[in-house]
Computed example of a mutant assay.
Amino acid sequence: MLSRRQGLKLSASAAAAAVSGAPAWSGGGADPAAPTVGTPVSIQVPEGACDCHVHVFPDPAAFPFWEGRAYTPPVATAAELLALQRALHLDRVVIVTPSVYGTDNGATLDGLRQLGPQRARGVAVIGDATTEADLDAMAKAGIRGVRVNLEQAGVFDPAASAKALDAAVRRIGQRPWHLQVYSRLSVIAPLKAQLAAVPVPIVFDHFAGAQAALGPQQPGFEAVLDLVRSGNAWVKLSGAYRASTRAPDYPDVAPLARALVAANPERLVWGSDWPHPDSGAVPGRKPTDLAPAQPIDDGRVLNLLAEWVPDAALRKAVLVDNPARLYGF
């Protein structure tokens, strides 16, 4: 947990940035209200468009981080998220509970409350101590899925992963929710048959963990494409910087996106992954040390969707129609 001094420092930094309009990174030309938008949106964003993957990190004095976390992110509030939405011309958003809170969904639920049911839905992280009453209350608050973060937990064994996924599906029960999975292709591919039989929608984070430099022919990606073709799985076109090192336009991500579109455009959604927390291990950085957010230009990344999904009607499906069905807007 952050000390009170660290928490006040984080909160003061966020407040200073909000007052001064200073960008969180040195990209230049950033929108003062939404400092991660350094490039104006140039694509036509249809009404009802949704950012399907963001996090909120409110004041840690009010919403403490989990002691077992792997990193400590800067403050990123619901108010700042709303400013991002407006700068990107988006009407809807999905807040996902990040690993730094463990199974405490308080920050996500507070974000949903602040943004309201017309705009926001959420994805929770649960554990053995999460009761059925808790799940019912979260459903009323706007939660529409459960996330299993195998990547951050370091679970790369398919057998152990299968148990974690089974446990989450059992907890979902008859609720009209989905199972969101953050993992890698070497874990997903061996579980293809099990994932195809899961009675709830499966949603893979961040291009299903594919590495852009290896292209659509990389081992395991065809298994994801098969699951998407059959309608058993969804994929988030999100976190391009996690798949590629070729910033700022990530050209090697485009073939992955186009392969997914060719497989089944009705099973794709888009996400910014704002505020781009740096969850990776850095030599000498302790989990309790502040990990600066990664310098991502959200306007530029949204504009890339025109290259990934050139057809305007299909982009509308990805931005509006598919999220409306998956999250119940």
Score class of each variant (00 low, 15 high):
P283C: 06
L88A: 01
P292G: 13
V96Q: 09
D298W: 07
A306E: 14
N264H: 14
T77P: 11
A30D: 04
V93F: 13
A83I: 07
A193Q: 15
N303F: 09
A49Y: 06
P158L: 02
T97A: 14
L214Q: 12
R144S: 15
R242F: 10
S42V: 11
M1Y: 02
I43A: 00
A189Q: 07
K140C: 03
N105E: 09
A139I: 06
L260Q: 05
A162R: 09
G173H: 03
V253C: 07
L214W: 04
A120V: 14
N149R: 01
R147E: 04
V282P: 09
D311E: 15
A124N: 04
G173W: 03
V54P: 11
A76T: 06
L314W: 00
A313D: 12
P219L: 00
K286E: 15
V148G: 00
A70G: 12
R170G: 01
A247F: 10
V37S: 00
V269I: 15
V309D: 11
N264Y: 10
L165G: 04
K316C: 09
Q114D: 13
P277H: 07
G231T: 10
Q6M: 12
I143N: 08
N105W: 10
V301A: 11
R86D: 14
L214F: 13
P117T: 14
P98C: 04
P287Q: 08
V45P: 00
N232F: 01
T97C: 11
D205P: 09
P219H: 00
N322E: 13
A233F: 10
D104M: 02
G102T: 06
P190A: 02
L150H: 06
G209T: 07
V146N: 06
R229C: 11
Q218F: 07
I43T: 00
A133W: 00
I172A: 03
T108V: 14
G209S: 02
A233P: 08
D311P: 08
G299R: 08
P98H: 04
L304K: 02
H89I: 01
K236V: 14
W66P: 11
D110A: 15
A78E: 07
R69P: 06
A107F: 13
Q194D: 14
G68V: 02
V54K: 05
G154C: 07
R285I: 12
D31L: 08
L260A: 07
P251V: 02
T72W: 13
K192R: 14
